[in-house]
Amino acid sequence: MKIIVILKQVPDSETKIKVKGDGSGIETDGIKYVISPYDEYAVEEALKLKEKAGGDSTVTVVSAGPDRTVESIRTALAMGADAAVHVNDPALEGADSLGVARALAKAIQDNGFDIIFAGKQGIDQDNSQVPSAVAELLDIPQVNIIAKFEITEDKSKATVSRRIEGGEETIETSLPALFGCEKGLNEPRYASLPGIMKAKKKPVKTVDLAGLGLDAGEVGAAGSHVKILKWIPLPERQAGKILQGMETAEASKELVRLLREEAKVI
């Protein structure tokens, strides 16, 4: 089976994000980048499927991003993926979700695929658009936010579950299909030391948009349908209010009034 994982590199969730003074973006100095956590579930599910499917199954990581993305690709290879395709083109900086999806879909098509795993969303911008768009462009079914995955013996169908309000939704789909992975689907393994050593020798193919036969004017920032006008930092948290010198009954009344009229939470 040709198993594909779509992977995005994002700032570590522990990184303190600072918005640039002119609001044109975020300060990238000192940011530590990691595999988007939901994509780690995708890598793990792909590796589990490979182990189960056996034979000549391979896991190929496909990722779009600048040079630094290779570090995260190597981590996925160290976890056990076999090969990677790195779409690296400066024109993709500022591309919208559709542009990125077009680039990824083409790279996946060129590589060949039987099944695709992705994170349900990237934890940086939380758009949750790329996986669905890739599936649409490849004209295959997609199920997002899956918490369980099973495949039939003949690998023609998959049964997956989604958590929904008050229950679980079970969906059966034909393959090939794309799945967006949710927390709880599995426990991503650590990249072992032997894995790190082996990852050095695994092939990472780098392609740009021209190499994929795509027009940077259409797929890249120039053709983006979405423009981010301004980045605004979160407002500083206000100091709390303490009600002092009041009787309990009076203080409670005042507290309810403040929660209702000022905080507007009740």
Partner: peptide, 15 residues
């Protein structure tokens, strides 16, 4: 090297 850095990162994450 990248490899060395990955090893240390792994140790940090595991720890």
């Amino acid at each position: 090297s990248d490899t060395q850095r990955q090893v240390v990162e792994l140790a940090r994450e595991f720890a």
